[in-house]
């Protein structure tokens, strides 16, 4: 079997084994249940700027799914692979490292895709969420999801390679992730944030991920800080993170994995 196919199969088996694991599945389902309860209880309220809470919450959940998959889940999985010896084993196999990296990327994309689809389906069926009506809207949704994933995956891989264990990884990333989540307008609308916080958040890809997703779902940019969609800036910031990460991550990973 060729390397790419073997890596993709590895990723799918890995994702399947995570879904069959009671604890992991429970955490995933709990997140979706919280989302469902939020849109049922406060989905009808206005979020400001003429948009409803359902759309706002949905965008926040999808953005956060991508962000946390890359920054929290991925480093924990990589650290666990180091700790448990999966990386050591793969290094001894022919084509082991490329298969491993393809596998990790596949399981991450599968995780993000599955959860995004579930969130959209629940939002649409239970909360009356309006899905993008145009091809342009779907295209925006797709590229923002993809670029947002690319922006955080190398960062997460680096964190995972640097940290000694899955427990440390969880402890180190959870606080900054929480702060960034609050500051980036995925839980609280950005317009309610003080000016310095807005500037701070706009350095990171999470804010732009949310902004780009809102552009796909909402008819108007009235609730955005500038009052207009800034998709070019969104692409530039997420792209910069992706490129910088992809330049740095392989070197760091190779070093961490080789010793």
């Amino acid at each position: 079997m060729n390397t790419l196919a073997l890596g993709i199969r590895r990723g799918l088996i890995e994702q399947g084994s995570i879904l069959r694991d009671g604890k992991e599945l429970g955490a995933n389902v709990a997140g979706l249940v919280i989302y469902l309860m939020l849109i049922l209880w406060i989905g009808g309220n206005p979020a400001g700027g003429g948009i409803g809470m359902t759309a706002f919450i949905t965008v926040g959940f999808i953005a956060f799914t991508v962000f946390s998959a890359g920054i929290t889940t991925l480093p924990m999985l990589i650290a666990a692979d180091q700790e448990e010896g999966a990386l050591r084993r793969l290094r001894t196999l022919p084509r082991g490292l490329p298969v491993y990296l393809t596998g990790r990327a596949t399981s991450l994309v599968a995780h993000i895709a599955l959860n995004s689809v579930l969130i959209l389906a629940i939002g649409n069926l239970a909360g009356g969420l309006a899905l993008p009506s145009s091809l342009y809207g779907w295209a925006t949704l797709t590229w923002v999801l993809l670029l947002g994933t690319l922006a955080v995956v190398p960062v997460g891989a680096m964190i995972g390679a640097l940290l000694p264990s899955a427990k440390t990884a969880a402890a180190v990333v959870s606080l900054p992730t929480m702060l960034l989540m609050i500051a980036s307008g995925v839980m609280v609308p950005m317009t309610m944030m003080p000016e310095p916080v807005r500037w701070f958040a706009q350095v990171f890809p999470l804010y732009w991920q949310g902004h780009g997703l809102r552009a796909a779902f909402l008819p108007s940019a009235a609730a955005e800080p500038g009052g207009v969609w800034q998709l070019g800036t969104a692409a530039a910031v997420m792209g910069a993170w992706a490129v910088a990460g992809m330049v740095l991550a392989p070197r760091l990973l190779r070093r961490a994995i080789r010793t």
Binding site: L6, I18, R20, D21, D81, E84, R88
Partner: peptide, 23 residues
Amino acid sequence: LQNCHDHPRWQVGTLLAHVAAHY
């Protein structure tokens, strides 16, 4: 390998088949 606890969630047969597919 010494001291490995890798792939804890995988099924035994699936893991062996996956490693075999590298060869």
